[in-house]
Design a protein around this nucleic acid. Structure first.
Lengths: 250, 250
DNA sequence: AGAATAGTGTCTTTGAGACATTATTTC
DNA sequence: GAAATAATGTCTCAAAGACACTATTCT
């Protein structure tokens, strides 16, 4: 390639025809269950199947594309509400097997999004056919989205151990009990309340007290819990390791 | 899009013009130092700068593209030697900021490769300008490759803690001391020999004895060490955590 | 009153790490 | 012989987890 062709950029015949999309695994907790945002596909291929929200990358960064797709599918716009400001978005991994889309070569950069509590997608908008589904009921998705979802869940479960990710699922002020329910929902197993409580408070920078107390006690009784907000730690040290299960080790 | 246009695939005007490449962060240990494979760029942009090996994705999976690029740049071909069979390849993350390549929108899927000891790239081949560079001397790389390398190193350092990755840097039979030198090279700090030894042997499935003993003792004296091979564990439990440094926590 | 929950105390076991020690080998 | 290294032993401290217990609030 000489100087002239450099200035002109690549020649389209120099590289294979590929399209790049983003797909978003958006997770939230509703009624104590971990849920993922899915859309109903109206067109071929996989018409009638459910899929992860996503679309072509435009003139924007990949992160911006993911946040934009999430906003469009949930019916939220960056200017109408600051709800989206509190959504945690991170890249998951990229899926590009030839044939994963029957129409053409599509390379999809998958993203994970964690939200405290997004409203139900508004009917009448672009998001008319989007809704939250408990992750254990999200099966038979279009394309390779079953795999993407599985990878996203594994990543989320891992990150709960080493990072304060769980605070992304609760409000700005929360009780230790609420935090524990996040862990229980994502990991799919109950945690010992007393040990969890002491453990969370012992990790520097995980949570800090607001000085406030919850307005009322638990639904079925119990004292009013103290309120906390997220601390400034980026990694939990020591980590909150999952209950050891030998079958996860090999 | 109706059924006819589905059968015809996407129309090129429906999606932005993008090219997809793979870039490979290939790591090995030479003379006790962690090294990365770099190529000298002969053309604009960044002519004369060093860069990570990479190229356009062809009609292949992304993993295959990464392994193919690595083979081409090192001058090894999958059929000439089984050396490449022992290379660990895994996806790192994807870089796609507009403007990261001045010529056009390029989305690059970065890969990590771990090799025990690849030969010096052969002159006269495509790999004529490729060579191994200690990672702390790999600076001012082309494009955003400084960032990609930094991300790759961070990933490698993390994976040493929780996985048997270190065994990918040594031969099929190795001593505990060799394994410790891998950790020291990647983490950039010495480890206590006695504690490391006991720790490695205490992790189920990390290493298993071959029953053999090294042909001779250390270079400057000492008994002949026992030989081990990689075990069947996929995760280390308990993990080999890095020496705690407070500045890594927040 | 009865039940559920928040928060704390205590004990045991495991593991990390500092340090010491012995045996073996090279120069 | 001197120095380095492999491998193991010992001790201390931190942390995980099981369990118990008290105080508070809801129905």
């Amino acid at each position: 390639m000489d100087e002239a062709s450099f200035l002109a950029g690549y020649n389209p015949r120099d590289y294979p025809a590929v399209a790049v999309t983003v797909d978003v695994v958006a997770l939230t907790i509703r009624d104590g269950r971990l849920c993922v945002l899915l859309v109903e596909r109206g067109q071929q291929p996989f018409a009638g199947h459910r899929a992860l929200p996503g679309g072509f990358v435009r003139d924007e960064t990949l992160d911006e594309a993911a946040l934009r797709e999430l906003a469009e599918e949930t019916g939220l716009t960056p200017d109408t509400g600051d709800v989206l400001d509190r959504v945690h978005v991170e890249q998951l991994r990229t899926y590009g097997d030839p044939g994963r889309d029957p129409r053409m070569r599509i390379v999809s950069v998958a993203y994970l999004a964690f939200a405290p509590h997004l409203p139900e997608p508004v009917a009448g908008s672009d998001a008319a056919r989007a809704y939250w589904v408990p992750v254990d009921e999200a099966k038979d998705l279009a394309f390779d989205h079953d795999q993407i979802l599985a990878d996203g869940l594994e990543r989320a479960r891992d990150k709960l151990e080493y990072t304060p990710l769980a605070t992304a699922f609760v409000g700005t002020a929360f009780t230790i009990s609420e935090l524990r329910q996040v862990y229980a929902a994502v990991w799919g197993e109950e945690l010992h309340a007393g040990n969890f409580h002491r453990k969370v408070l012992s990790v520097p920078g995980f949570v800090e007290s607001t000085g406030e107390t919850a307005a009322r006690g638990g639904e079925r009784g119990g004292p009013r819990a103290r309120l906390y907000r997220a601390g400034d730690a980026r990694l939990l040290h020591p980590a909150l390791l999952r209950p050891t299960r030998e079958d996860r080790i090999r």
